[in-house]
Design a protein around this nucleic acid. Structure first.
Lengths: 358, 358
DNA sequence: TTGTAGGCGTTATCAA
DNA sequence: TTGATAACGCCTACAA
């Protein structure tokens, strides 16, 4: 004889709305309405239903509800590299905002591989996510052609405008940030300032580079193309750039990297070469990743409000999902804050170094 | 006529299996079978169906399929703090392994808040995830009582054994790692070694602390309780611990932290106080977070293979999901690797410091 | 205030 | 080798 628990549904099987309805002697519709608080239900039945729901630990199946309502309360978040300190901070913000609205976050890590990005987005479409957030990623026209654009859910991009598809966009004021930083360096007497670029495909990287050149010109300085080095936002690329720069016959007195990770890479390379920062060279980054404020790094940088970037993107997306497509694409540009720390200082007279044999 | 914006006005209705069936003049069952490769279909119809599928860009709705098959191909991953550098590396590993098996990752960030953990797990149950991975988190008996345990999907815990529920478990050999590190310090002449503990609730933190005490005893050294400081795995708690330790009347010659973030906090505090590492004090951590190997940090630590921890956990989980609950819980213990870097050196003679006035 | 019934898009079972 | 049909669990017109 099997011992039946009168309260719990048969082991493992979760109770359905029918079980609750039966237990209460009402119709499933009533149970649904009690839970959805859609139409008025007599206090009596309401109480009964709620009691039974609790007793049976009934929770509606999100799958069934999703099928019926054509919603999943899930948002796909596509990042290039979750291990890059920038990503988790943004993702943390997205997560928080989604949590507040009872949505879930499906994390997709592309490793910046195009095919994987496409495959992931396709699978997100299959899963019927309600929306998509692209973190420092975009959809090229070519990539977008891989699937039926009409079936893409609402989209928000972070730090990189979407090429193929109009979408809401959250970014930081790159131009202002870099300009502030450059002025800080000019004030310190720097004239020979190098720039480590980010990926060319990145809108924000491009904007930062552009602002650098504009600031140089505005200051009446020549932009030496030798002093612009291509990086890819990784710490390693920063280290390589750093080595190259200090080995030059007439090296820069300051190095600006398009993000903190590269700046930190530069710092590492300089340390390995025994070059003092900021006495010999000044270094600065962009983002203000959490480790940058550590006393041992102490990097002068431009803060991008990463967490806020994430929450903002999520909220724009949820509004769009609820509100419908009526409004035109929105762009939110958060302010960049210059954080002056220990890696920038007065420029060493440019001539001195030349006398030192390589 | 309104110009339709493809993304902002999304949801061109996606074709269903019925559309494909109709277009081919076959039954939906046949389409399903072609796609699932379940039963034999004549080459002719097969080709026809596949062609139409391509033409219509038909993809089965994961929601409908999930409802029918009682599977979602989604795994919930619950982390305490996604911004802690440890998390993204593990999550990256999980993500990769899930990707290989075409599963998705639903990320839940609890901020170590119990109610949020409960609410998240409940929502994951609602969503019918096929499995759950708890990263440096556990379910206490009390927490587990919040929902019907029978309805919990298969579970894998990382770095913290599950109290309430039997589950597969992936961790690192904490004891061996700490023992190796302690022997390294002993060999350098350290006797007065402090320990910064992790959260008491963490199994791995407890194991690391235990191994520290065992090593001290085994070496015939007294464990001075003053030298054990409670931290919480954050960089701030490490900084606080560091300050307290060096302000002691007879400070330690070496400080071991239960994780890298706290060790890095210690380093920051020492730097702020002008104390040289490793000349005045040696410092070591546990995890080998990516920044630890940077030339400016250069932290001696014990590597936990984080990425591999993630992939292993995911694979155990997927096996369990496919294979059923038959087998008993498994434990995988990865080996810990001591990484000797620049923050550990010969012990300064214990007497010297006493002469220097505070 | 409540109940009935249809359908969301699949897959599985049975029948042909 | 293929087709019809019944679920899966829910929400929501429409009816009562």
């Amino acid at each position: 004889m099997t011992k039946q628990d009168p309260v719990l549904a048969p082991s493992g099987r979760r109770p359905t709305i029918l079980d609750v309805a039966a237990a209460c002697g009402v119709s499933p519709a009533t149970v649904s309405n009690v839970l959805a608080e859609k139409r008025h239900i007599s206090a009596e039945t309401r109480a009964l239903v709620l009691a039974k729901v609790q007793e049976l630990k009934y929770v509606a199946s999100a799958t069934a509800r999703g099928l019926r309502m054509n919603r999943t309360w899930s948002i796909g978040v596509v990042v290039g590299d979750i291990a890059n300190p920038f990503s988790p901070e943004v993702v943390g913000g997205v997560e928080e905002a989604l949590w507040e609205r009872k949505n879930n976050l499906i994390l997709c890590n592309t490793g910046f591989r195009s095919e994987r990005k496409i495959a992931y987005i396709q699978s997100l479409i299959d899963k019927h996510v309600d929306g998509l957030i692209l973190v420092t990623q975009t959809l090229t026209v070519k990539e977008a052609s891989a699937f039926d654009i009409k079936r893409l859910p609402p989209l928000v991009t972070i730090n990189r405008v979407s090429e193929a598809i109009p979408s809401d966009h959250v970014t930081v004021d790159n131009e202002q940030g870099v300009t502030d930083l450059m002025n800080h360096l000019f004030a310190l007497g720097h004239k020979r300032i190098a720039f480590v670029k980010g990926l060319t495909s990145s809108t924000s990287a491009a904007a930062r580079h552009k602002a650098y050149r504009a600031a140089m010109k505005h200051q009446g300085l020549l932009v030496d193309h030798e002093l612009t080095i291509q990086g890819d936002y990784t710490i390693e690329s920063g280290a390589i750039a750093g080595r190259r720069l200090v080995e030059m016959s007439s090296p820069p007195t300051a190095i600006v990297a398009a993000n903190d990770m590269m700046a930190i890479g530069v710092l590492g390379a300089l340390r390995d070469k025994g070059i003092s920062v900021p006495e010999d060279v000044s270094v600065a980054g962009f983002d203000d990743v959490s480790i940058s404020s550590h006393p041992l790094i102490n990097l002068t940088t431009i803060e991008q409000p990463k967490y806020e970037t994430g929450t903002t993107a999520a909220r724009l997306l949820l509004e769009r999902i609820e509100g419908g497509p009526a409004e035109p694409p929105r762009v939110v540009m958060l302010t960049a804050n210059l954080k002056i720390r220990g890696t920038t200082g007065r420029a060493r007279p440019a001539t001195r170094r030349k006398l030192i044999p390589q």
